[in-house]
Write a protein that binds this DNA or RNA. Structure first.
Ligand SMILES: [Mn+2]
Ligand SMILES: [Mn+2]
Ligand SMILES: [Zn+2]
Ligand SMILES: [Zn+2]
Lengths: 156, 156
DNA sequence: CTGTAAACTGAAAAACATTTTCATTTTTCA
DNA sequence: TGAAAAATGAAAATGTTTTTCAGTTTACAG
């Protein structure tokens, strides 16, 4: 997903095409792994020095609502954002957190690269939990951690 | 799990039995759902008014290391803590986040009560992710959201 | 093109959350 | 019971997110 495709999505949704947003989206597309708001501010300022942190927060909120990025919760530092994969966004496969389409990530414990994956087939687990606890499960949230191919090689 | 059992675990692990810790543990056991550090400070001060927030953070960190509480990441407000279930702690079922035994919670979207559940049988999903992405998956993290039995009744 | 209304921006301040520091108090244990 | 070690909490430092607001930029109708 290029940053101008992302801009198109924003304008299609009725948002303006501004310099600040282009800078942020460029930064987001260029970033290797998930990036925190502070990370994105720094990277965005390389493109548009006047960029403000408030705009980073506001734009990420919009992007998240549109399903273009996902907020990851990490052990360290908590929130980071990662672009969502086109294929998965299109799929509309909603076991979703609160009714929104959702995806899940594997995150490298070494280099922190994150990759979205398709097909979280956990209906059996959900059924078991509903039976065990009496809860009506409406959504779930799953993250995996490990080593990416590159870091596996370096390891050995 | 009573609070004095928790104190026993602490002393067994070499930590002192202090008034501040007893107050915090009482508060934790009494709390209905997951509680934030600020929540626990307030509840703990009902028992020991001098209790400080720093001690709340420090004690939660210890309890988490011992596997007695788990840190939940929620959409709103981020970190909260919930006692872990005895049965699950004993089980030593470690698909674990970083090698530690782990458990998962279902959280009520209405009243925020959290219940730990056993048996996250997602080996097939893990295998598929490893195959899809090339990552070597070492641990995972799963939360479910829905309605607890009580809130389901109220709903209808 | 232009002019205008609506949308957006970023500085600053406020509101929160977490961590560090350090002098004092409490606990443990010989 | 006394000394050493561990733990405490106030205060300050650090970090993150939200709110406000006056000024700027963008979109778009004319
Ligand atoms: Mn989180
Ligand atoms: Mn598991
Ligand atoms: Zn890696
Ligand atoms: Zn409920």
């Amino acid at each position: 997903m290029t940053s101008s495709e992302l801009v198109d999505q924003l304008t299609a949704a009725g948002y303006s095409n501004t310099r600040a947003r282009r800078a942020l989206l460029d930064a987001l597309v260029a970033s290797a792994g998930p990036a925190s708001p502070a990370d994105l501010l720094e990277a965005g300022r390389a493109r548009h020095p006047a960029l403000g942190l408030v705009t980073v927060y506001r734009t990420l909120e919009i992007l998240e609502q549109l399903g273009l990025v996902r907020k990851l919760h990490l052990e360290e530092g908590c929130h980071s954002y990662a672009l969502s994969t086109t294929a998965l966004r299109a799929e509309g496969d909603d076991h979703g957190h609160g009714g929104d389409a959702h995806g899940h990530h594997v995150i490298c414990q070494q280099c922190h690269r994150a990759v979205e994956f398709a097909g979280c087939d956990i209906d059996a687990v959900i059924a078991s939990v509903q039976q065990q606890t009496g809860f009506a499960v409406r959504s779930h949230w799953l993250e995996m951690f490990g080593l990416c191919p590159t870091c596996q090689e370096k390891q050995s």
